[in-house]
Every structure is written in structure tokens, then in C-alpha cells.
Design a protein around this nucleic acid. Structure first.
Lengths: 161, 161
DNA sequence: CCTACCGTTGACGTTAACGTAAGACTTGGA
DNA sequence: TCCAAGTCTTACGTTAACGTCAACGGTAGG
């Protein structure tokens, strides 16, 4: 019943330097510093020298941010909102570990659920519109294909006759 | 059996001035001029004075461009590609009206179909990833909801006992 | 024909989201 | 201890996609 400590293998949650996070996520150190500058992503800690130290949680957050950016096309400002909502989840989690009263925990959890619901709704709206757009494209494709078939049969009749 | 001409009602395809197109589509005149500058959208004609004249076709194209921008988050450069593909469709249509040989028309049509297919594929890729992302969000929501239910039942038992 | 818009062409300004470069300091391994 | 590689801050540069302003000319309705 040892703890999860094992110092001879690379600790799974050893602090990451900025370059490591960058390599693991595909963003540049500059981007991480910029995100910090605008209050989007804080390092887990700093060394006395000023060097930034990240934990795997932050690395995951980087990936999350990139998805919100690339997939949903949100601006960093919008992403801040979304993350602020999601942080409610984190607060709820912390409250769970601490000795927070059940009622308080319920409240936080409900907030988090609500924030999540709004995000899903937002995504669904977007999905709906993209699907409609795609279907229009498919429709056009079908009409063109039909027209092509028509032309082809014309051509074959001409070849026969 | 008159033609579709009727000059006493507002002609459906009367040339539109830049401000009209702007109002009808929600973009600014500046944006239309910019799109023209980068070769994204040409007016149907110019007056001698230099004033731009658009037809309903261009107005529709504006809406189309905005959808590609907002919904799919494409850059104007990417949109140029997409539109170039779609213009193949237009060329095929023109060839159909003209006395182009059936074989030529078939070729153009096939190109258009292929371009459309690639666009649909692209959209589907995006859709797939967005759906996965949404489902992850929903999953998280479900876990939180379950946790909340747990807390609630805890609370009610405490209230009873 | 007059007037109130509408439009034109420059040309410079703006915002988001970083890139890049300089100069100094840290860190980690041989 | 030493050196290469990494990191720090500061600050200016860049790109896309327009916004804004000035100075000027065209358009349309009464």
C-alpha cells in the first residue's frame, strides 16, 4: 500500500517546463506566454528565477483551448468565457475534496452542470447549421449527378442510333 | 404567353448598387470593395462613373461567403478555393446553355461534382470532430449529473435519519 | 437645376493572435 | 566548473480582414 510515489521512473506529474508543454501540445512557448498575458492560462507555479512550471492539467487545458479555437472557431475571449464556466467544475471538485458542506457542493455542481449545458447547446446550434449547409451541398451534388446521368444516357443513345 | 418581363413592378433582377447589396446581406460596402480587391467577388458590371453594379447572383454569393466564413471558419483564401471549385459548376451551366458538345459538358460537370464532393468531405470531417467534442462535453455533463444525484440522495437521507 | 445622398479612390488606422529578435540570466549534464 | 541549451523580459514586426476619414464626383427626386 505504497503511495503513488516512484522516483526512479519519470514522475507522471512532474512539473513541465514551457518548452516541454510546447512540444507536447504543438503550440509555441510564445503562445503560452501570450495566453498567460491575457489571463487565459496560468502556469501551475514559478521558480524563483521566474521560470514557468506547468502541470499535466495545464497541458490538457492547452489542447482543450486549441480545440475550441480550431474546431469551433471561438476567439480567445470567448474561450475565456467557456473556460470560466468550466472552472466552476474545478471549483466544485475542490469543494468536494475539502470539507465543504454538501449543500455548497451541490450548488457549485449545479452551476457547473448549467455551464456545461450551455456549451453543449451552443455546439449543437452550430452543428445544426453546419449540417444544413452540408445537406444543401449534397443536394446540389445530387442534382449535378442526375444531370450527368442524363447527359451520359443521351450520349449512349446517340452512339447507338 | 408574355415573357417574364414586367417593367411596372420592381424588376427582380435589376442591378443593385453597393449599398443595397450591403443592406440586403449585412456586410458593409467596404467589405464588398475589399473582397473585390482580393479577387473574391467581382461586381456584375460598372457604370462609366466607376460605380459598381451587382446582380442578385452576387448578392447570394455574399451570403454564401459569409456562411463559409462564420460557419466553417474558413479564411478568405480558403473560400477562394472553394468558390473556384464551385465556379466550375457555373462554367458547366454556361456550357449547357451554349452549344458546347455533350462530351465537353460531361467533363465540366464531372469536375464540378468532384469539387463538390471534396467540399462535402471536408465539412464531414469537421462535423465528425465537432460531434466527438460535443459528446465528450455531454459525457462530462452526465458524470456531473450523476454525482449531483448522489449528493442529493445523501442529503435527503441525512434529512430523514 | 438643386440638393441630399450615394459612391469612388486613396491612404492610414485597428484588432486579434501571435512571430521574431535582442540581451541577460538559468539550468542541467559532462 | 563550464558550456550548450533553455528561459526570461522587453519591444517591435506581421497578417488577415476589415474600419475610418478625406476629398471629390455621380445620381435621383422634387
Amino acid at each position: 500500500m505504497g503511495t503513488e510515489q516512484s522516483s526512479d521512473v519519470v514522475a507522471a506529474d512532474r512539473p513541465l517546463r514551457i518548452g516541454e508543454v510546447a512540444r507536447q501540445t504543438g503550440v509555441t512557448p510564445r503562445t503560452l506566454r501570450y495566453w498567460e498575458e491575457i489571463g487565459l492560462l496560468e502556469p501551475a507555479a514559478y521558480r524563483e528565477s521566474g521560470e514557468r512550471l506547468y502541470s499535466p492539467a495545464e497541458r490538457d487545458r492547452v489542447l482543450h483551448i486549441r480545440e475550441l479555437q480550431d474546431l469551433l472557431g471561438l476567439t480567445l475571449a470567448e474561450i475565456q468565457d467557456v473556460l470560466a464556466s468550466e472552472d466552476t467544475v474545478e471549483r466544485a471538485r475542490r469543494a468536494a475534496r475539502a470539507d465543504a458542506p454538501t449543500l455548497k457542493r451541490l450548488q457549485l455542481l449545479s452551476d457547473a452542470i448549467e455551464a456545461n449545458r450551455r456549451l453543449v447547446e451552443r455546439i449543437n446550434d452550430r452543428l445544426q447549421r453546419v449540417i444544413e449547409f452540408r445537406d444543401e451541398c449534397i443536394e446540389r451534388g445530387n442534382r449535378m449527378a442526375a444531370r450527368r446521368a442524363e447527359l451520359e444516357s443521351q450520349l449512349s443513345r446517340a452512339g447507338k442510333g
